[in-house]
Nucleic acid binder design. Structure first.
Lengths: 221, 221
DNA sequence: GCTGTATTAGACTGTCTAGTCCAGATTTGA
DNA sequence: TCAAATCTGGACTAGACAGTCTAATACAGC
């Protein structure tokens, strides 16, 4: 045991392990930790239950492995490389749209639900995941804001707090409402409108003083 | 059966029912739906298990009764009655502080966790609770903003969307971070600073044009 | 005090689950 | 080709849990 996993990447054992993690992720996300049984995961992975226990000591360890794997798979939709060729308004607008769409994805919602529900039971996971996901996203956004400030196209003193402000304005209670079934999934047009309002407010607050401010916000539906 | 419950308010039966609901709320909030067993709830309520089933047909019905009871107990910390004697800045600031403190209360956090976790299993609850809690709060805030706009002390076109914007700016990712263990409970001073930033941004966006704008925000911490 | 109803403790059923064990089949690596 | 490791499926243990049942007790209204 404990052989180099990479060497065996094409081997059956490693494929089984992957299948278990994939199936486990699906079942945990779908049902939550308690309601996900090892038998169902085994069936989903097309693997015998014993095989799961060959790879993971317990249900809890499997869960932790899956979640911690997910942190490496989180993708942040903000490419600062494009920033030079764009304007703050365009870049923030497209970032905002991407972010809204991403966070309202069924799998993102399921992930959020799972993390909120289980972070009490498994404290270390939540912080790790936050750092890899939302935290990193805010940090990248702050980096971009910093860069634009140096360039003179924005005027922000505390970029970390401004980044959080922007994301807060953008998302508001939307995720909670969708999660809780208070409203349908918004259309793309509604998301775009929401993004536009947030960007426009943000630029009103943080555009350099010598630049004409945006239209007064809050007129959106 | 089905006697008027109010008449029997001083009776033993009604007291038992109350004890069951109270104990059930505590156990559900503490452990979540799945991990809360009827035996534990009975013990906590100092009641026999059969008595629970005399009052509620099933665990699920008990859960629903408890949650729907909570909706009537939600208190919104915004008294517009004080508004006339104050200024938008002062009132929003105090509202913001109250709201932040309220939402970071251990019991509020536990409630949030429970709702997020269980709204998938019991869809109708989430919407009801949202309407009674966060939704009503946003609505009251919007009402206040409307009133100040009519009075000429604010200039807002869409007050509902502005209310959500304000709450979004105020809370940002804070609840999620605390819930997930990414950060400690913030001190009162930090909460106040956070409220100040949000209020100042909000007033910059929505103060009437003839009034001097606030200091440029984002300088916090 | 009498009568009917609610409560109680605890035994009990049936179901579900995490985790183990085993004997035979398959795969892997040399 | 052979031996070690891994996989399989299914039976099994032990415990938890929702919900029922019972026989005895406490209580409320008349």
């Amino acid at each position: 045991m404990a052989k180099n996993a990479r060497v065996a990447a094409s081997g059956q054992s490693e494929r089984k392990r992957q299948a278990i993690q994939t199936a486990g992720a699906a079942v945990f996300l779908d049902r939550g930790y308690e309601a996900a049984s090892m038998d169902v995961i085994a069936a989903e992975a097309k693997v015998s239950k014993q095989t799961i226990y060959n790879h993971f000591h317990s249900k809890d360890e499997l869960f932790k492995a899956i979640i911690s794997d997910m942190t490496t798979a989180l993708v942040i939709p903000l490419s600062i490389s494009e920033a030079a060729a764009s304007t703050p308004q365009k870049l923030l607008q497209s970032f905002a749209c991407d972010l809204l769409k991403l966070m309202l994805t069924p799998s993102s919602l399921a992930m959020y639900r799972l993390i909120v529900a289980e972070s009490a039971r498994v404290p270390e996971l939540g912080a790790t995941l936050y750092a890899a996901g939302a935290g990193q996203l805010l940090h990248k956004l702050a980096g971009y804001l910093e860069w634009e400030t140096k360039r003179g196209r924005l005027a922000i003193e505390n970029t970390e707090s401004a980044a959080e402000l922007f994301v807060g304005m953008l998302t508001g209670r939307l995720r909670f409402r969708v999660l809780v079934g208070d409203c349908e999934m918004p259309s793309d047009a509604e998301l775009k409108e929401r993004a536009t309002v947030a960007v426009s407010c943000f630029l009103t607050l943080f555009a350099p003083v010598n630049i004409e401010p945006m239209r007064r916000p809050g007129s959106g539906r």
